[in-house]
Design a binder for these strands. Structure first.
Lengths: 201, 201
DNA sequence: ACCTGAACACCGTTCAAGT
DNA sequence: ACCTGAACACCGTTCAAGT
Protein backbone atom coordinates (compact mmCIF):
# COMPACT_ATOMS: atom_id res chain seq x y z
CA UNK A 1 0.00 0.00 0.00
CA UNK A 2 1.10 3.54 -0.60
CA UNK A 3 2.70 4.97 2.54
CA UNK A 4 0.60 7.93 3.49
CA UNK A 5 2.69 10.77 4.75
CA UNK A 6 0.99 10.83 8.14
CA UNK A 7 -0.67 8.55 10.65
CA UNK A 8 -1.83 8.95 14.23
CA UNK A 9 1.31 7.22 15.42
CA UNK A 10 3.71 9.26 13.30
CA UNK A 11 2.08 12.48 14.46
CA UNK A 12 2.33 11.54 18.13
CA UNK A 13 5.88 10.25 17.76
CA UNK A 14 6.97 13.46 16.09
CA UNK A 15 5.12 15.41 18.76
CA UNK A 16 6.92 13.49 21.50
CA UNK A 17 10.26 14.23 19.86
CA UNK A 18 9.40 17.90 19.55
CA UNK A 19 8.26 18.09 23.18
CA UNK A 20 11.44 16.40 24.39
CA UNK A 21 13.64 18.73 22.37
CA UNK A 22 11.98 22.08 22.88
CA UNK A 23 9.55 21.53 25.72
CA UNK A 24 5.81 21.14 25.82
CA UNK A 25 4.94 24.78 25.04
CA UNK A 26 6.70 24.34 21.68
CA UNK A 27 4.27 21.57 20.79
CA UNK A 28 1.81 23.62 18.79
CA UNK A 29 -0.26 22.52 15.82
CA UNK A 30 1.56 24.84 13.46
CA UNK A 31 5.01 24.02 14.83
CA UNK A 32 4.49 20.28 14.58
CA UNK A 33 3.06 20.60 11.08
CA UNK A 34 6.14 22.57 10.01
CA UNK A 35 8.38 19.85 11.46
CA UNK A 36 6.47 17.22 9.50
CA UNK A 37 6.60 19.41 6.37
CA UNK A 38 2.88 19.43 6.15
CA UNK A 39 0.03 21.93 6.39
CA UNK A 40 -1.35 22.56 9.90
CA UNK A 41 -4.71 21.26 8.75
CA UNK A 42 -3.25 17.88 7.79
CA UNK A 43 -2.94 17.06 11.50
CA UNK A 44 -6.65 17.50 12.05
CA UNK A 45 -7.28 14.39 9.97
CA UNK A 46 -5.60 12.37 12.73
CA UNK A 47 -6.40 14.24 15.92
CA UNK A 48 -9.46 16.22 16.96
CA UNK A 49 -7.56 19.31 18.13
CA UNK A 50 -4.43 20.72 19.67
CA UNK A 51 -5.27 19.65 23.21
CA UNK A 52 -5.70 16.06 22.10
CA UNK A 53 -2.24 16.27 20.57
CA UNK A 54 -0.57 17.45 23.79
CA UNK A 55 -2.53 14.92 25.77
CA UNK A 56 -1.60 11.99 23.53
CA UNK A 57 2.06 13.01 23.54
CA UNK A 58 2.14 13.27 27.32
CA UNK A 59 0.39 9.91 27.65
CA UNK A 60 3.09 8.42 25.44
CA UNK A 61 5.96 9.96 27.38
CA UNK A 62 4.44 8.76 30.65
CA UNK A 63 4.79 5.14 29.58
CA UNK A 64 8.28 5.43 31.03
CA UNK A 65 7.11 6.38 34.49
CA UNK A 66 9.09 4.21 36.92
CA UNK A 67 7.30 1.69 39.12
CA UNK A 68 8.05 0.81 42.73
CA UNK A 69 11.14 -1.29 43.36
CA UNK A 70 9.85 -4.80 44.10
CA UNK A 71 11.91 -5.46 47.20
CA UNK A 72 12.83 -3.57 50.33
CA UNK A 73 11.11 -2.15 53.36
CA UNK A 74 7.96 -0.19 52.47
CA UNK A 75 9.40 3.17 53.50
CA UNK A 76 12.53 2.51 51.47
CA UNK A 77 10.43 1.54 48.47
CA UNK A 78 8.50 4.78 48.75
CA UNK A 79 11.64 6.84 49.07
CA UNK A 80 13.26 5.11 46.11
CA UNK A 81 10.21 5.58 43.93
CA UNK A 82 10.04 9.26 44.83
CA UNK A 83 13.61 9.78 43.71
CA UNK A 84 13.24 7.77 40.50
CA UNK A 85 9.94 9.32 39.53
CA UNK A 86 11.25 12.82 40.12
CA UNK A 87 14.23 12.16 37.87
CA UNK A 88 12.02 10.84 35.08
CA UNK A 89 9.40 13.59 35.33
CA UNK A 90 12.05 16.25 35.07
CA UNK A 91 12.95 15.10 31.57
CA UNK A 92 10.10 17.05 30.02
CA UNK A 93 8.10 19.94 31.35
CA UNK A 94 4.39 19.31 31.76
CA UNK A 95 4.68 15.60 32.57
CA UNK A 96 4.05 16.05 36.28
CA UNK A 97 1.06 18.29 35.66
CA UNK A 98 -0.49 15.86 33.19
CA UNK A 99 0.07 12.99 35.56
CA UNK A 100 -1.57 14.84 38.43
CA UNK A 101 -4.67 15.36 36.33
CA UNK A 102 -4.88 12.08 34.43
CA UNK A 103 -3.17 9.34 36.43
CA UNK A 104 -6.45 7.50 36.91
CA UNK A 105 -6.77 7.06 33.15
CA UNK A 106 -3.21 5.85 32.52
CA UNK A 107 -2.49 2.13 32.95
CA UNK A 108 1.08 2.68 33.99
CA UNK A 109 0.11 5.28 36.56
CA UNK A 110 -2.59 3.01 37.95
CA UNK A 111 0.04 0.32 38.41
CA UNK A 112 2.20 2.78 40.31
CA UNK A 113 -0.64 3.86 42.59
CA UNK A 114 -1.54 0.21 43.15
CA UNK A 115 1.95 -0.52 44.36
CA UNK A 116 2.10 2.64 46.46
CA UNK A 117 -1.09 1.41 48.08
CA UNK A 118 0.63 -1.91 48.64
CA UNK A 119 3.45 -0.22 50.51
CA UNK A 120 0.92 1.72 52.58
CA UNK A 121 -0.86 -1.49 53.51
CA UNK A 122 2.42 -3.09 54.51
CA UNK A 123 2.83 -0.17 56.88
CA UNK A 124 -0.48 -1.15 58.45
CA UNK A 125 -2.68 1.52 56.89
CA UNK A 126 -6.18 0.64 55.78
CA UNK A 127 -9.03 2.26 53.88
CA UNK A 128 -8.88 6.04 53.69
CA UNK A 129 -5.57 6.22 55.46
CA UNK A 130 -3.89 3.85 53.01
CA UNK A 131 -5.23 5.95 50.15
CA UNK A 132 -4.22 9.20 51.81
CA UNK A 133 -0.75 7.95 52.68
CA UNK A 134 0.04 6.73 49.17
CA UNK A 135 -1.55 9.85 47.74
CA UNK A 136 0.63 12.03 49.94
CA UNK A 137 3.80 10.52 48.51
CA UNK A 138 2.49 10.48 44.95
CA UNK A 139 1.32 14.08 44.91
CA UNK A 140 4.35 15.30 46.84
CA UNK A 141 6.69 14.17 44.09
CA UNK A 142 4.50 15.50 41.30
CA UNK A 143 3.84 18.84 42.92
CA UNK A 144 7.51 19.35 43.69
CA UNK A 145 8.52 18.65 40.10
CA UNK A 146 5.87 21.08 38.92
CA UNK A 147 7.18 23.70 41.33
CA UNK A 148 10.75 23.24 40.13
CA UNK A 149 9.63 23.67 36.54
CA UNK A 150 7.83 26.88 37.42
CA UNK A 151 10.85 28.28 39.24
CA UNK A 152 13.10 27.48 36.29
CA UNK A 153 10.70 28.92 33.76
CA UNK A 154 10.22 32.13 35.72
CA UNK A 155 13.97 32.41 36.23
CA UNK A 156 13.79 32.67 39.99
CA UNK A 157 16.09 29.82 40.97
CA UNK A 158 18.53 32.58 41.75
CA UNK A 159 17.10 35.57 43.52
CA UNK A 160 18.11 39.09 44.36
CA UNK A 161 16.69 39.58 47.83
CA UNK A 162 15.30 42.96 48.90
CA UNK A 163 16.39 44.72 52.08
CA UNK A 164 15.51 42.52 55.05
CA UNK A 165 15.15 45.18 57.74
CA UNK A 166 12.84 44.04 60.48
CA UNK A 167 13.17 40.44 59.32
CA UNK A 168 16.08 39.19 61.43
CA UNK A 169 15.58 35.49 60.81
CA UNK A 170 15.43 35.90 57.07
CA UNK A 171 18.48 38.19 57.20
CA UNK A 172 20.42 35.65 59.24
CA UNK A 173 19.58 32.89 56.76
CA UNK A 174 19.75 35.02 53.61
CA UNK A 175 22.37 32.74 52.07
CA UNK A 176 19.85 29.91 52.13
CA UNK A 177 17.38 31.97 50.12
CA UNK A 178 19.58 33.49 47.40
CA UNK A 179 19.47 30.22 45.51
CA UNK A 180 16.46 27.93 45.59
CA UNK A 181 17.99 24.67 46.82
CA UNK A 182 15.39 22.51 45.17
CA UNK A 183 17.26 19.21 45.59
CA UNK A 184 17.89 19.68 49.30
CA UNK A 185 14.34 20.86 49.93
CA UNK A 186 12.85 18.00 47.96
CA UNK A 187 14.75 15.55 50.09
CA UNK A 188 14.01 17.31 53.35
CA UNK A 189 10.29 17.43 52.63
CA UNK A 190 10.32 13.80 51.56
CA UNK A 191 12.02 12.86 54.81
CA UNK A 192 9.39 14.70 56.83
CA UNK A 193 6.72 12.80 54.95
CA UNK A 194 8.40 9.45 55.47
CA UNK A 195 8.96 10.12 59.14
CA UNK A 196 5.35 11.16 59.53
CA UNK A 197 4.32 7.87 57.90
CA UNK A 198 6.74 5.96 60.09
CA UNK A 199 5.33 7.49 63.23
CA UNK A 200 1.75 6.70 62.27
CA UNK A 201 2.50 3.12 61.21
CA UNK B 1 -7.02 69.12 37.65
CA UNK B 2 -9.01 67.26 35.07
CA UNK B 3 -9.57 63.67 36.14
CA UNK B 4 -7.82 61.57 33.59
CA UNK B 5 -9.78 58.51 32.72
CA UNK B 6 -7.03 56.13 33.80
CA UNK B 7 -4.19 55.82 36.26
CA UNK B 8 -1.91 52.99 37.33
CA UNK B 9 -4.04 52.48 40.42
CA UNK B 10 -7.36 52.51 38.61
CA UNK B 11 -6.06 50.00 36.07
CA UNK B 12 -4.81 47.63 38.76
CA UNK B 13 -7.96 48.01 40.85
CA UNK B 14 -10.15 47.24 37.86
CA UNK B 15 -7.86 44.33 37.02
CA UNK B 16 -8.18 42.97 40.55
CA UNK B 17 -11.96 43.20 40.34
CA UNK B 18 -11.97 41.45 36.99
CA UNK B 19 -9.68 38.70 38.27
CA UNK B 20 -11.81 38.14 41.35
CA UNK B 21 -15.00 37.94 39.28
CA UNK B 22 -13.92 35.90 36.30
CA UNK B 23 -10.58 34.42 37.30
CA UNK B 24 -7.05 35.27 36.32
CA UNK B 25 -7.22 33.90 32.75
CA UNK B 26 -9.95 36.48 32.03
CA UNK B 27 -7.54 39.25 32.90
CA UNK B 28 -6.38 40.11 29.38
CA UNK B 29 -5.35 43.46 28.02
CA UNK B 30 -8.28 43.63 25.64
CA UNK B 31 -10.80 42.38 28.23
CA UNK B 32 -9.70 44.86 30.87
CA UNK B 33 -9.71 47.71 28.33
CA UNK B 34 -13.27 46.82 27.36
CA UNK B 35 -14.29 46.85 31.02
CA UNK B 36 -12.74 50.30 31.40
CA UNK B 37 -14.39 51.46 28.16
CA UNK B 38 -11.07 52.30 26.69
CA UNK B 39 -8.85 51.18 23.85
CA UNK B 40 -6.45 48.32 24.64
CA UNK B 41 -3.54 50.59 23.87
CA UNK B 42 -4.59 53.06 26.57
CA UNK B 43 -3.40 50.58 29.19
CA UNK B 44 0.11 50.56 27.79
CA UNK B 45 0.52 54.18 28.97
CA UNK B 46 0.36 52.86 32.54
CA UNK B 47 1.87 49.40 32.40
CA UNK B 48 4.68 48.00 30.25
CA UNK B 49 2.77 44.91 29.10
CA UNK B 50 0.17 42.28 29.90
CA UNK B 51 2.43 40.28 32.21
CA UNK B 52 3.09 43.35 34.32
CA UNK B 53 -0.66 43.78 34.61
CA UNK B 54 -1.25 40.25 35.92
CA UNK B 55 1.72 40.54 38.21
CA UNK B 56 0.61 43.85 39.69
CA UNK B 57 -2.92 42.55 40.20
CA UNK B 58 -1.69 39.42 41.95
CA UNK B 59 0.66 41.45 44.12
CA UNK B 60 -2.31 43.58 45.15
CA UNK B 61 -4.53 40.59 45.95
CA UNK B 62 -1.74 39.01 47.99
CA UNK B 63 -1.75 41.91 50.42
CA UNK B 64 -4.46 39.94 52.18
CA UNK B 65 -2.33 36.89 52.76
CA UNK B 66 -2.85 35.88 56.41
CA UNK B 67 0.05 35.96 58.84
CA UNK B 68 0.84 33.48 61.61
CA UNK B 69 -1.34 33.66 64.71
CA UNK B 70 0.78 35.36 67.37
CA UNK B 71 0.16 32.92 70.17
CA UNK B 72 0.07 29.17 70.59
CA UNK B 73 2.49 26.27 70.36
CA UNK B 74 4.66 26.43 67.23
CA UNK B 75 3.08 23.37 65.62
CA UNK B 76 -0.39 24.76 66.28
CA UNK B 77 0.63 28.09 64.78
CA UNK B 78 1.88 26.35 61.67
CA UNK B 79 -1.27 24.30 61.35
CA UNK B 80 -3.50 27.32 61.81
CA UNK B 81 -1.59 29.35 59.24
CA UNK B 82 -1.81 26.50 56.73
CA UNK B 83 -5.58 26.39 57.07
CA UNK B 84 -6.02 30.17 56.89
CA UNK B 85 -3.65 30.64 53.98
CA UNK B 86 -5.29 27.87 52.00
CA UNK B 87 -8.71 29.47 52.48
CA UNK B 88 -7.45 32.87 51.31
CA UNK B 89 -5.49 31.55 48.34
CA UNK B 90 -8.51 29.68 47.08
CA UNK B 91 -10.38 32.94 46.55
CA UNK B 92 -8.72 33.57 43.21
CA UNK B 93 -6.95 31.20 40.86
CA UNK B 94 -3.29 31.95 40.24
CA UNK B 95 -2.56 33.42 43.66
CA UNK B 96 -0.74 30.36 44.95
CA UNK B 97 1.34 30.10 41.78
CA UNK B 98 2.33 33.76 41.89
CA UNK B 99 3.22 33.49 45.55
CA UNK B 100 5.41 30.44 44.95
CA UNK B 101 7.39 32.38 42.36
CA UNK B 102 7.51 35.84 43.90
CA UNK B 103 7.19 35.56 47.68
CA UNK B 104 10.70 36.87 48.18
CA UNK B 105 9.73 40.17 46.54
CA UNK B 106 6.49 40.69 48.44
CA UNK B 107 6.69 42.42 51.86
CA UNK B 108 3.69 40.59 53.23
CA UNK B 109 5.02 37.22 52.15
CA UNK B 110 8.42 37.98 53.63
CA UNK B 111 6.69 38.69 56.93
CA UNK B 112 4.95 35.35 56.72
CA UNK B 113 8.15 33.46 56.00
CA UNK B 114 9.89 35.33 58.81
CA UNK B 115 7.27 34.16 61.26
CA UNK B 116 7.29 30.61 59.88
CA UNK B 117 11.03 30.65 60.51
CA UNK B 118 10.30 31.85 64.02
CA UNK B 119 8.08 28.85 64.65
CA UNK B 120 10.76 26.56 63.24
CA UNK B 121 13.34 28.05 65.59
CA UNK B 122 11.02 27.58 68.52
CA UNK B 123 10.94 23.92 67.58
CA UNK B 124 14.72 23.88 67.93
CA UNK B 125 15.65 23.97 64.23
CA UNK B 126 18.61 26.05 63.11
CA UNK B 127 20.23 27.11 59.84
CA UNK B 128 19.28 25.02 56.84
CA UNK B 129 16.86 22.89 58.80
CA UNK B 130 14.90 25.89 60.04
CA UNK B 131 14.69 27.16 56.47
CA UNK B 132 13.75 23.75 55.10
CA UNK B 133 11.13 23.14 57.78
CA UNK B 134 9.37 26.46 57.27
CA UNK B 135 9.71 26.06 53.52
CA UNK B 136 8.10 22.62 53.70
CA UNK B 137 4.96 24.04 55.32
CA UNK B 138 4.89 27.13 53.11
CA UNK B 139 5.27 25.24 49.83
CA UNK B 140 2.96 22.44 50.91
CA UNK B 141 0.04 24.82 51.29
CA UNK B 142 0.80 26.67 48.05
CA UNK B 143 1.34 23.54 45.99
CA UNK B 144 -1.83 21.94 47.30
CA UNK B 145 -3.93 24.98 46.42
CA UNK B 146 -2.40 24.99 42.95
CA UNK B 147 -3.21 21.31 42.58
CA UNK B 148 -6.80 21.83 43.64
CA UNK B 149 -7.18 24.62 41.08
CA UNK B 150 -5.82 22.39 38.35
CA UNK B 151 -8.19 19.57 39.27
CA UNK B 152 -11.15 21.93 39.22
CA UNK B 153 -10.15 23.53 35.94
CA UNK B 154 -9.61 20.19 34.25
CA UNK B 155 -12.90 18.91 35.62
CA UNK B 156 -11.43 15.82 37.26
CA UNK B 157 -12.64 16.30 40.81
CA UNK B 158 -15.10 13.61 39.90
CA UNK B 159 -13.71 10.72 37.93
CA UNK B 160 -14.99 7.82 35.96
CA UNK B 161 -12.52 5.07 36.78
CA UNK B 162 -11.53 2.49 34.16
CA UNK B 163 -11.69 -1.24 34.77
CA UNK B 164 -9.41 -2.13 37.66
CA UNK B 165 -8.61 -5.73 36.77
CA UNK B 166 -5.30 -6.81 38.22
CA UNK B 167 -5.33 -3.82 40.57
CA UNK B 168 -6.98 -5.29 43.67
CA UNK B 169 -6.06 -2.55 46.10
CA UNK B 170 -7.35 0.19 43.84
CA UNK B 171 -10.49 -1.83 43.21
CA UNK B 172 -11.06 -2.31 46.92
CA UNK B 173 -10.68 1.43 47.56
CA UNK B 174 -12.38 2.61 44.38
CA UNK B 175 -14.89 4.65 46.34
CA UNK B 176 -12.02 6.76 47.68
CA UNK B 177 -10.91 7.59 44.17
CA UNK B 178 -14.17 8.43 42.42
CA UNK B 179 -14.14 11.85 44.00
CA UNK B 180 -10.94 13.69 44.75
CA UNK B 181 -11.26 14.36 48.48
CA UNK B 182 -9.07 17.42 48.42
CA UNK B 183 -10.00 18.67 51.88
CA UNK B 184 -9.33 15.37 53.61
CA UNK B 185 -6.08 14.84 51.71
CA UNK B 186 -4.90 18.37 52.44
CA UNK B 187 -5.39 17.78 56.11
CA UNK B 188 -3.87 14.32 56.12
CA UNK B 189 -0.76 15.50 54.30
CA UNK B 190 -0.48 18.48 56.62
CA UNK B 191 -0.68 16.15 59.62
CA UNK B 192 2.09 13.98 58.22
CA UNK B 193 4.23 17.07 57.80
CA UNK B 194 3.50 18.33 61.30
CA UNK B 195 4.20 14.94 62.80
CA UNK B 196 7.45 14.72 60.88
CA UNK B 197 8.42 18.10 62.29
CA UNK B 198 7.37 17.06 65.76
CA UNK B 199 9.51 13.96 65.62
CA UNK B 200 12.58 15.87 64.47
CA UNK B 201 12.18 18.66 67.02
C1' DA C 1 -9.47 9.28 2.28
C1' DC C 2 -6.04 12.48 2.75
C1' DC C 3 -3.99 16.86 2.21
C1' DT C 4 -3.88 21.97 0.66
C1' DG C 5 -5.00 26.98 0.70
C1' DA C 6 -7.40 30.76 1.95
C1' DA C 7 -9.84 32.75 5.54
C1' DC C 8 -11.60 33.78 10.34
C1' DA C 9 -11.52 34.71 15.34
C1' DC C 10 -8.80 35.62 18.96
C1' DC C 11 -4.71 37.07 21.38
C1' DG C 12 -0.80 40.71 22.61
C1' DT C 13 1.65 44.40 20.73
C1' DT C 14 4.05 48.27 17.49
C1' DC C 15 3.52 52.51 15.14
C1' DA C 16 1.67 56.74 13.63
C1' DA C 17 -1.78 59.89 14.36
C1' DG C 18 -4.95 62.71 16.91
C1' DT C 19 -6.12 66.08 20.95
C1' DA D 1 0.75 63.60 28.32
C1' DC D 2 -2.81 60.70 27.26
C1' DC D 3 -5.69 58.15 24.27
C1' DT D 4 -7.30 56.35 19.52
C1' DG D 5 -7.20 53.61 15.17
C1' DA D 6 -5.26 50.86 11.99
C1' DA D 7 -2.14 47.30 11.35
C1' DC D 8 1.01 43.26 12.33
C1' DA D 9 2.54 38.75 14.15
C1' DC D 10 1.15 34.87 16.21
C1' DC D 11 -2.01 31.35 17.74
C1' DG D 12 -5.83 27.51 16.86
C1' DT D 13 -9.43 26.38 13.88
C1' DT D 14 -13.47 26.21 10.05
C1' DC D 15 -14.64 25.67 5.35
C1' DA D 16 -14.26 24.70 0.61
C1' DA D 17 -11.45 22.89 -2.72
C1' DG D 18 -8.14 19.87 -4.78
C1' DT D 19 -6.22 14.88 -5.85
Amino acid sequence: MATRTLSVKSVIDAGAALAREKGLPALGVRALAARLKVTPMALYRHLPDGDALSSAVLDALLLELPVLPAAGKPLDQLRAWATDARAMLRTCGGLAHHLLLHWFELPRALEVVESLLGAAEQLGFKGFEAVAASNAVFTYVLMRVQLEESLRKANVLQRKLPALRGLPRLAKNAAEYRVARVDAHFEYGLNLLIEGLDRRS
